[in-house]
């Protein structure tokens, strides 16, 4: 659970997934839902996704064996819902809001700017593993549009220059720490 508080550690340590640990975690998660009449596969996958910040292939495989559900079913769930990722996330997660209100206030230009500055396409993680870029269809803070959610923090009323400052600051910070 330390992953979310220290995103930097998780990226490296979970690049290779520890198999015995996966079993432990999955047993815990499955145990949590054992009293339910129905099997909430989606909740289980959400918990695994929260734990690892993505869905490791091995974890899916373990769930499919333990719960006797086909791998193809889990895989179709994991690719259908946007909250799941099948590849590890970067240190920083950036979500650019593409809601209607943000769109009419120029969100597509913001997205383009982020894509260009960080050299990362929406839905992907940059090559150095630092940034994951996602688009999100409205986070419900339309008054602040256009806005991005940077590691869970809302940054609103963006302009191209403001986003450049924000990203620039983070670039420098990373260079200093690494």
């Amino acid at each position: 659970m330390g992953l979310r508080t220290n995103p930097k550690a998780c990226y490296r340590s979970y690049m290779k997934v520890d198999l015995t640990k996966i079993d432990q975690i999955i047993n815990q998660i499955i145990d949590k839902y054992k009293d339910d009449e129905d099997v909430p596969y989606i909740s289980i996958l959400q918990d695994i996704n929260d734990e690892y910040r993505y869905l490791p292939e091995e974890a899916l495989y373990r769930v499919s064996q333990k719960m006797e559900v086909s791998m193809s079913h889990l895989y179709s769930l994991a690719t259908f819902y946007k909250c799941f990722s099948l590849v590890p996330k970067g240190e920083h997660e950036i979500q650019v809001c593409m809601g209607t209100a943000c769109h009419v206030r120029g969100a597509s230009r913001i997205l383009e700017k982020v894509t260009r500055d960080l050299q990362v396409k929406p839905g992907k993680t940059s090559e150095n593993g630092k940034f994951s870029l996602e688009t999100v269809n409205c986070v419900g803070a339309c008054a602040q549009g256009p806005l991005v959610v940077f590691d869970g923090k809302y940054v609103g009323k963006l302009t191209l220059n403001k986003i450049e400052k924000m990203l620039g600051g983070n670039h420098e910070k990373d260079n200093k720490t690494s």
């Binding site: 129905d38 099997v39 909430p40 989606i42 959400q46 259908f80 819902y81």
Partner: peptide, 24 residues
């Protein structure tokens, strides 16, 4: 139940499918 991030799950039958643990 936390949604999975799929707009179509706002549609009633897709939402029900999602609660049942299927794709929406």
């Amino acid at each position: 139940n936390k949604g999975g991030g799929a707009f179509v799950c706002g549609e009633s039958s897709a939402l029900i499918a999602s609660i049942e643990g299927n794709v929406g």
